[in-house]
Design a protein around this nucleic acid. Structure first.
Length: 685
RNA sequence: GGCGAGGUAGCUCAGAUGGUUAGAGCGUCGGAUUCAUAACCCGGAGGUCGGGGGUUCAAUUCCCCCCCUCGCUACCA
């Protein structure tokens, strides 16, 4: 933990990629915690720049545009607006929400690159890349489609097969085709600028693993894994027509790699913010007394902990992040959130379907944030947390305090008389609670901080239950005055300390109590409201969420699931392949074989090595079926063998043929078994 | 397979430089209460701390092996 006295804070949260709306996973992982942190710091009077914006470059945007028949600019304009608006409505208090297509950013990123270039920080390297001769354009991996070598899915992308999930490189695809022209791509040399990450390895190792031992285990562990694996130079430029042009001679048709320009987007956004507010941006990025914190999801760890810091180091003028509190992922009703499968709770939809309930979602996402491991969001849990925590504990306490004050003292803050031990005790409790919240927030333990906030409300309820003002009123109104005064002071404290977590509620509560001075420092004081001061009417801070509302959401997800299944059903059967003529068919030597020996291939978890009696000979065949069959159960089985397939080395073993299996749509393999009376070597035709 | 992160009450999670009865919230059961959105408050039940070995007077906490989940990464003719 750093005890340094920081003069200002630069808080960044991951730039959302502008090819889709924001969902609860993004919120729980990044934006809600970042917002809590930023609001807390501001409440304590700190100088804070809370920075974000849309990430609008990269291949995925161009693909999306092409698919929808739009220009990339139209795509990012649409999502940028949508994302920006929903963040605003949700109460994420960015000081600026910018975008990477802005002029400032293009200039900033371009200059950044140029400076590194001029200082010799890059390596120039040529390599062979796929090129579409008809469109006269280099092809990103995702621009190439072909048949998956693993599962024969004919529409696999050059980087991944969406059917079986294997990671691919374009050269592995069978019958690769350019998605632009449909032509077969050719290999062609192209030059790129590589950033030699390996040169920063020692520095990174010390900076992360020695100087920042306080980083979260998941973050530090991930970094160590990368460092131990050895860093390699990474190309920082791409052949693409959407992005920031590489500002170097001989780089026509090339743009900066999206992960080069995106983090620099934090800097550009800070510049825009500074310009708009008449500040100087530089201290926020270059001064040692600035604390820089990146809020991100775990998928971004390598970029924010390795690549970007190394780029900052290469420039030499920048500070480094003090911490990168990356969160894990949030699942939805036990399934991974998926944009393409529409398995998500979209923020813009939530805002419409649960109007005025921003804080409920903020609360649930914080209480169940994936801080140490992946977590699950369920609508049932959403309902329970609202009904039995927000309504029953927080809302209820405030309501009791305000209603009783109106009942007994006509809505004015009654006079506090001599305090009894129980009064002192509850006030001490509340103050201790605030200290704990501060400590938790400073360690990025938002879940814990939130539960400590609820504990303060619990103390309030307990205080009322123990002092029973509704009974005492008959005999000792003076004593009740003290009790209600204290209950109102606690409510006021709640309105202050809830602000980072539940800003809308905090606002409502302050208004109800007519509380004006609401610095964090005042929280816990017993004279936040003055005696004789009027307070407003009781209004419910939270309302119950009925079963029907939750059931409707679950139903919506079920419908999505059904639609997905229907779609999968439609594409379940792999489409027919091209017609082959009889001669081609007869070229294949298919025959019955018998497995004599079988063993797992060391260091592989998919491969089994067999000795097969093909009637012709005993030969070695390696097959990737270990996930479906054990070596033991295969011994003695009759199998179909493609025996004249060209031999191929797999993990150093020469495989002389291929075993044939049936593959179901879910990827599971089923034996195709000749009868036991089929002879070894019997031909199949 | 390698690396990383997790596996603690029905659910969501704390915790431990090894040491008396392993914690919290929610749920559940019982009680009390009626100011409050059938809410609050009190109490009970509920865990061989993923499995197996080892070190130790003592391990859930340290070491080794194994299993499961998630992520990154490699093999899949």
């Amino acid at each position: 933990m750093s005890d340094k006295n920081f003069k200002r804070y630069t808080i960044t949260s991951a730039l959302p990629y502008a090819n889709g709306p924001v969902h609860i996973g993004h919120l729980a992982g990044v934006y809600v915690p970042a917002d809590i942190y930023a609001r807390y710091l501001r409440l304590r009077g700190n100088d804070v720049a809370f920075i974000c914006g849309s990430d609008e470059h990269g291949v995925a945007i161009t693909l999306k545009a092409r698919k929808e028949g739009k220009t990339p600019q139209q795509v990012v304009d649409q999502y940028h607006e949508q994302i920006k608006t929903s963040f605003e409505k949700f109460g994420i208090s960015f000081d600026i929400y910018s975008r990477t297509t802005s002029k400032t950013h293009h200039e900033t990123a371009s200059e950044y690159f140029q400076k590194l270039y001029e200082n010799g920080k890059f390596l120039e390297q040529s390599s062979e890349q796929f090129f579409d001769p008809k469109e006269n354009q280099f092809l990103a991996d995702r621009y190439i489609k072909g048949t998956c070598p693993t599962c024969s899915f004919p529409e696999a992308y050059g980087d991944q097969c969406e059917s079986c999930g294997s990671t691919l490189s374009p050269s592995e695809l069978i019958n690769p085709k350019s998605m632009l022209s449909g032509e077969a791509p050719v290999l062609k040399a192209t030059k790129h600028w590589y950033f030699p990450l390996d040169q920063y390895e020692d520095w990174l190792r010390k900076w992360i693993l020695e100087d920042h031992k306080e980083w979260k285990p998941n973050v530090a562990g991930q970094c160590k894994s990368w460092l131990d694996g050895g860093l390699k130079p990474r190309p920082m430029t791409r052949d693409l027509d959407w992005g920031i042009p590489v500002p170097v001679e001989g780089a026509e048709g090339k743009v900066l790699y999206v992960w080069f320009d995106a983090p620099i987007g934090y800097i550009s956004a800070t510049k825009d913010w500074a310009a708009a507010t008449g500040k100087d941006w530089e201290p926020y990025w270059k001064s040692d007394d600035t604390k820089l914190v990146h809020f991100i999801g775990k998928d971004n760890i390598v970029f924010h902990c390795i690549i970007f810091p190394a780029l900052l180091k290469a420039d030499g003028g920048y500070i480094f992040p003090e911490n990168v509190p990356a969160n894990e992922f949030l699942n939805l009703e036990s399934n991974k959130i998926s944009t393409s499968r529409n398995w998500a709770v979209w923020l813009h939809e939530y805002l419409e379907e649960f109007p005025d309930k921003q804080d409920v979602l903020r609360y649930v996402l914080t209480a169940n944030a994936p801080e140490t491991k992946d977590n699950d969001f369920t609508w049932k849990d959403f309902q329970t947390r609202n009904n039995s925590e927000l309504v029953a504990i927080f809302g209820n306490f405030v309501n009791r305090a305000v209603v009783l004050t109106h009942k007994f003292f006509e809505g004015t803050v009654p006079m506090k008389n001599e305090l009894q031990p129980i009064d002192e005790a509850v006030l001490v409790d509340v103050k201790a609670g605030i200290k704990s919240i501060e400590a938790s927030l400073e360690q990025y333990k938002f879940r814990e901080a939130l539960s400590q906030l609820m504990d303060v409300a619990r103390s309030g309820n307990k205080y009322l239950a123990e002092t029973e003002p509704w009974k005492l009123i008959k005999e000792d109104k003076e004593r009740v005055a003290t009790i209600m005064n204290i209950a109102l002071q606690i409510s006021s404290t709640l309105s202050i300390i809830a602000e980072p977590f539940l800003p809308f509620t905090s606002g409502k509560l302050k208004e109800m109590l007519c509380l004006e001075n609401a610095d964090w420092k005042l929280a816990g004081e017993s004279d936040l409201l003055k005696e004789g001061q009027e307070i407003g009417k009781a209004a419910l801070l939270f309302e119950k969420i009925e079963d029907s509302a939750v059931e409707a959401q679950v139903q919506k997800l079920m419908d999505t699931k059904k639609a997905n299944e229907a779609e999968a059903e439609g594409s379940k059967v792999v489409p027919a392949k091209e017609v082959v003529n009889f001669e081609e068919f007869m070229k294949m030597d298919l025959r019955v074989g018998e497995i004599k020996t079988a063993e797992a291939v060391p260091k592989s978890n998919k491969l089994l090595k067999f000795t097969v009696d093909t009637g012709l000979d005993q030969r070695t065949i390696v097959s990737g079926i270990a996930k479906h069959f054990t070596a033991e159960e295969m011994i003695g089985k009759k199998v179909l063998v493609m025996s004249n397939l060209a031999p191929r080395k797999i993990m150093g073993i020469e495989s002389q043929g291929m075993l044939l299996f049936a593959e179901n749509e879910d990827g599971s393999l089923k034996a195709v078994s000749p009868g036991s009376d089929a002879q070894n070597g019997a031909t199949v035709a």
